[in-house]
Design a protein around this nucleic acid. Sequence first.
DNA 1: TGACAGAATTGGAACGTTCCAAATATTTAA
DNA 2: TTAAATATTTGGAACGTTCCAATTCTGTCA
Lengths: 348, 348
Amino acid sequence: MTKARITVIDIAKAAGVSKSTVSLVLQGSSLVNEGTRSKVNAVMRELGYVYNRGAANLRQASAKSRIIGVVVNDLTNSFFAELAVGVDMVVQSAGFVQFLSNTSESIDRQREVVASMREHGISGLIVSPARATDAADFKPLVAAGIPVVVVVRNLPGAKVSSVVSDNQAGMMSAVKHLADLGHKRIAFLGGFPDTAVFDDRLAGYRSGMEAAGLDYHQELVISSAPSRAGGVEAIGKALVLADKPTAAVCFNDAVAFGVCDGLRARRLEPGSDFAVVGFDDVIEAQAAVPALTTVSVDPQGIGRRGAQLLLKQINAGKAEAETVTTAVRLVVRESCGARKSVKIETGL
Amino acid sequence: MTKARITVIDIAKAAGVSKSTVSLVLQGSSLVNEGTRSKVNAVMRELGYVYNRGAANLRQASAKSRIIGVVVNDLTNSFFAELAVGVDMVVQSAGFVQFLSNTSESIDRQREVVASMREHGISGLIVSPARATDAADFKPLVAAGIPVVVVVRNLPGAKVSSVVSDNQAGMMSAVKHLADLGHKRIAFLGGFPDTAVFDDRLAGYRSGMEAAGLDYHQELVISSAPSRAGGVEAIGKALVLADKPTAAVCFNDAVAFGVCDGLRARRLEPGSDFAVVGFDDVIEAQAAVPALTTVSVDPQGIGRRGAQLLLKQINAGKAEAETVTTAVRLVVRESCGARKSVKIETGL
DNA sequence: TGACAGAATTGGAACGTTCCAAATATTTAA
DNA sequence: TTAAATATTTGGAACGTTCCAATTCTGTCA
């Protein structure tokens, strides 16, 4: 319909002021007279003016673009969807807008999207790095003064801020719970040993065993893909051991589901015949049968926390690398054998 | 570290050419000599040049910003997360980047984020509109030549393109399936009557009943919130009818789960005592007990389709409003009583 | 009345790119 | 060898904003 774009010059002309004044109004400056301000605003509304942030960014520092980039490795996983929602909440109410991209664990894709975001002048970046991401990958960003916050998986060696859940404490409480139920041989199943998260959770497992006065046996730690299939595989290996475990803490919920599948395939009922504890508390954990006992990590909270941290750094202008670990809590359901009642949860 | 930003002028200087030439290289123009091109590229790499899209957009039409906006009403719902992933896939491989925002069904928030996206110069918008969105809300966008594609929920009256699933056919097949199993009194439960999706699904229900030679009874259509709680409420009303239904098609899976809850609370087992069919095939549908028979809609496909349609319009420069409905298929599981075997699904 | 302070406004020069028309280099054809 | 044709390169003028320094208005006070 309307041919040309309406610019601040058009507004200035129509309102009978200079473009500088219009700009001042746009920025909410206190220098401009109240009467002028309202007239300009009226004209803007009337003409349907839309602010051109691109042009503004050209003059201002990129810190003012009010775009923050978010890259996650798997948005189909509700864990990350929740995380993105958390980020969106705080980012949105601070008047920022988020670029959201999905890497599907592809490190190349990650590089691409980060480069693309940079071209668009993001003010900051929140990233859950794809596996095997090089700590140096974000060097150029921080060198250019763009704050980076790593979430969920930390990147040892990179001097960027991070928000991770307390993997160690979570695993410890899971082990303690199983030990309290009388289990002596508790396995640690699933996960790739080349990730920081794995290390943390494993460390928690070891401390938990020690705290409970149980021996640590190398053969009870069985790594595998952190997926449902990986869980099936891991429990398979665990059950051919000479001295079989009677319970397992799993790298994450997906593995735990796989472990349950594997148990059933061998006519063992998860919960009564073998105790299983997951990690993450994904949305399906509650509805599964048996409902999964797991360590709840509140991804939305991580997202919010990460966004807050990032905004703080953007506003501060300088980015001190800072690490925050968010609390987790064990949610006892049925798969550990502690409760057998099936209660119907209604409502949302 | 590096003080100033590297611009095409710096590159030009260092490569001994003019900025115009550098610009040509940037755009991959065939006008520039091969030798020059590679030298310029080398210098760019060496100096760590990053393209400033904002500046470029200032000169070019906004259609070239290569940003597409995506707004969904509930990203926590895996349905929409999948949808976003579908969009991201095609958008990313076309060299675009996506703004993703969540409205939580708030119409104000939706207005805000759309305005914000517009200020950032998006080339197009994909939106799953919040409930009660006014068809006129996107008028300014299309007037400004920005293509808009509405997904999942259509917006009757708005002259924009849309990608919706074939709600009517899906509901028809659900009803047919129940009728084939011998059910005569089939209820339609849940959903708000003020939405286009509700109308479509209800229409499908009526046609399905008619096609099966069954009478349509007003009292068997019970609307409620499209949530689990709404499902509990709806089945409650259905079971106090003088002539009770023996089966129900539900507005969506959430309602269906609620219906199952409500049945159990009355000591009725979904599947054997009362047949329940959902709609959407959310991720939990498969893992639930009993596994939910439902109409599968492939949200990722809708996302992909919507993105393709949008890109087509962006490239064409002109946006013909076009409606595409994507196929759905009935997935028979256990909640309809057709199968009773519990099979263990392993792997992914 | 004039001088002065403060409030409000304003014209240009940036910002980093693309585009245009024009200039220059290189080939080809005669 | 030169004109014409083709291939390559190039200065400026945009684009829509913000910022700076400077200007014009208001009063106020002596």
